[in-house]
């Protein structure tokens, strides 16, 4: 189980390969990568991501501990970036390793749902016509109820 909060770009392929390497009991690896998406109207200059150093790592570690308690997981990895990111850049990734795919998929979705609204990150969309904090969606809060 590991957490990395960083401004640096990460390589999805290299991270996945390193995470998957040398695990005798693992039959399934699931990964999810979040990418900076342009606005529907276009013109996004950058996405600025702010976080709460200290609490961020604690909150993510807590979410991972819960995932490991609920599913048969062998390991999990969360990488989340902060700072100024461009359209198409990876924001974050989650990886889960389990003996079977059902646990790996479910735990990855659980981690994503909780990261969205329980890890202290805030996104701001910056464009030539102004900057705006991304509002939390009711759907993200609703998504937690299924767990």
């Amino acid at each position: 189980m590991s957490v990395r909060v960083q401004s640096a770009l990460f390589d999805i392929g290299a991270e996945t390969a390193a995470f998957a390497k040398g695990r005798a009991g693992v039959g399934a690896i699931v990964t999810f990568t979040g990418i900076v998406r342009d606005r529907a109207s276009g013109g996004l200059s950058r996405m600025e991501i702010e976080h709460y150093p200290g609490m961020t790592e604690r909150a993510i570690a807590g979410i991972e501990t819960e995932a490991i308690a609920r599913w048969h997981l062998i390991d999990s990895l969360v990488i989340h970036r902060y700072g100024a990111l461009g359209v198409g850049d990876p924001i974050m990734m989650v990886a889960t390793a389990a003996p079977h795919r059902g646990d790996a998929f479910a735990a990855a979705e659980f981690l994503m749902d909780y990261l969205k609204s329980r890890a202290p990150f805030w996104k701001k969309e910056v464009a030539a016509d102004g900057a705006e904090w991304v509002a939390a969606k009711d759907a993200d809060e609703d998504a937690l109820r299924r767990w």
């Binding site: 979040g34 990261l115 202290p120 805030w122 996104k123």
Partner: peptide, 10 residues
């Protein structure tokens, strides 16, 4: 103590 808007991670 920290104050902030609802979080928008992921």
């Amino acid at each position: 103590v920290a104050f902030f808007p609802p979080m928008t991670g992921g």
